[in-house]
């Protein structure tokens, strides 16, 4: 099968070419980050470092972003945990306790996932000011949880729809109540979809920009807002900026590299159909 070998070689060449392009931005950030300050020059951007590896840029970048990285972490962890618990409960009720109109309600909730947040931004700001949650992290957490309800409910509902009703009926015969069924049957089976939802919500909230810039004041800025500010500043050199960008992207990158398998496996388990 010479033709097959030829074809496979061609496929590999295409795949490797794409892989190089996909890795180019990461390579550029790393390369720039490990050069000492005196070797940084836009004209020699792609040259390898000449005098060993230095971490000056990363240290300078970290100094710029440290408080904001903390802000993001403090916001994202409670957000991911609470919204996955809420989504799990909603998904269970909407898939196993259907009532008249529950499908319609689900569709109406689902629509909330697609709306451009510019269309609710003015009322949101007024409302958050009114309930005194404007400007700080707790308010941002609340907003992320509420606008996360559609997607988390969707993922859990689709996952639970794949769990047969027989097992629940067996539980009912044993006298389990609505919450008992959840506690002893559904919840222990939910690990794959919890993995998907926690990773998803973590990534979404970490990377989100619009709510973050509108709803927090400067001392509570999450990392995306601070990074954008850094990029617009004339005072920060681009090599520090590249190192800072890599630092800002690192948590979600690490989550993806180490937990991405669970994410994909959870998706394959029917967590997100289409």
């Amino acid at each position: 099968m010479n033709r097959r070998i030829l074809l496979n070689t061609l496929f590999y060449i295409i795949l490797i070419a794409f892989a190089i392009v996909f890795l180019l931005p990461i390579y550029m950030m790393l390369l720039t980050g490990i050069k000492p300050l005196n070797e940084v020059d836009l004209k020699t951007m792609w040259n390898l470092p000449e005098n060993g590896i230095h971490f000056d840029n990363f240290i300078a970048g970290y100094k710029q972003l440290a408080p904001n990285l903390t802000n993001s972490l403090v916001m994202v962890i409670p957000e991911a945990i609470l919204s996955s618990l809420l989504g799990s409960l909603n998904g269970y009720l909407l898939s196993k306790w259907k009532f008249r109109g529950s499908n319609l309600i689900f569709s109406l909730v689902l629509f909330g996932m697609f709306i451009p947040y510019q269309s609710i931004l003015i009322p949101l700001v007024r409302f958050m000011q009114f309930i005194k949650l404007y400007g700080d992290i707790p308010g941002l957490v609340l907003v992320h949880i509420i606008y996360g309800i559609p997607i988390t409910t969707l993922i859990f509902r689709n996952y639970y729809a794949g769990i047969g009703t027989e097992i629940l009926e067996a539980g009912r015969i044993d006298g389990a109540s609505l919450l008992g069924l959840y506690r002893y049957i559904i919840f222990p089976l939910s690990a794959p979809s919890f993995a998907v939802v926690i990773i998803w919500q973590f990534t979404q909230a970490w990377n989100e920009f619009l709510f973050a810039i509108i709803l927090t004041n400067q001392s509570h800025w999450p990392v995306t807002v601070a990074l954008n500010n850094l990029a617009g500043s004339q005072l920060v050199q681009w090599n520090v900026l590249m190192a800072a960008t890599l630092l800002a992207a690192l948590p979600t990158l690490l989550v993806y590299i180490f937990l991405g398998r669970f994410f994909l496996r959870g998706l394959m388990a029917g967590a997100l159909k289409g």
């Binding site: 996909f22 990377n207 960008t245 990158l253």
Partner: peptide
Amino acid sequence: FPMSISFIA
């Protein structure tokens, strides 16, 4: 992997 990076970054 680029999916995990923010639009800002």
